[in-house]
């Protein structure tokens, strides 16, 4: 068996370059969506995330105990070959759909490594919260 120099060079280059990507291999024992996962919201969040080459693994909204306040969890996955940084803001709405003003309404920067996932969590400021809006922004610096 003979290996051509070009093939050998390519193989060596790949071996050197791939570890430099710093990708993360992620696995999960969960095979089905969580019982309280919100499917419609997941699709909407996915539409938003695909624009920056990320995708939504799941969206959950539940009552945090013992406070009784609603809490949202959004699982974001990065299937790309480089880490991605993005800004996100989750705003809570009341039953009528009006925005609940809160000091927790701030932009947060989050990084997700290549091949990895990150769970974004946000707690509703009051018991009046029933729904949320999710805003996403690609980081200009990364």
């Amino acid at each position: 068996m003979t290996i051509r120099p070009a093939t050998l060079l390519l193989t060596l280059s790949m071996a050197v370059l791939l570890p430099a990507c710093g990708s993360v291999n992620t696995t999960s024992t969960r095979r089905a969506p969580a019982a309280d996962e919100i499917t419609d919201t997941k699709l909407q969040v996915n539409d938003l995330l695909t624009e920056i080459f990320l995708h939504c693994r799941g969206v959950r909204m539940y009552r945090s105990q013992p406070s009784g306040l609603l809490e949202a969890q959004i699982v974001v996955a990065n299937d790309g070959f480089s880490a991605r940084t993005f800004g996100w803001n989750l705003r809570w709405l009341d039953q009528a759909g009006n925005l609940i003003a809160s000091k927790t309404d701030v932009w947060r920067a989050t990084s997700v490594p290549a091949g990895g996932t990150v769970t974004l969590t946000d707690l509703a400021p009051t018991l009046a919260a029933t729904d949320f809006t999710f805003e996403l922004r690609r980081s200009d610096n990364r």
Binding site: S64, P66, S67, K103, T104, L123
Partner: peptide, 13 residues
């Protein structure tokens, strides 16, 4: 930081 602290305080109940 302040948003995280507020959330954590409220979550603790």
């Amino acid at each position: 930081a302040s948003a995280s602290m507020i959330e954590s305080l409220l979550r603790s109940g």
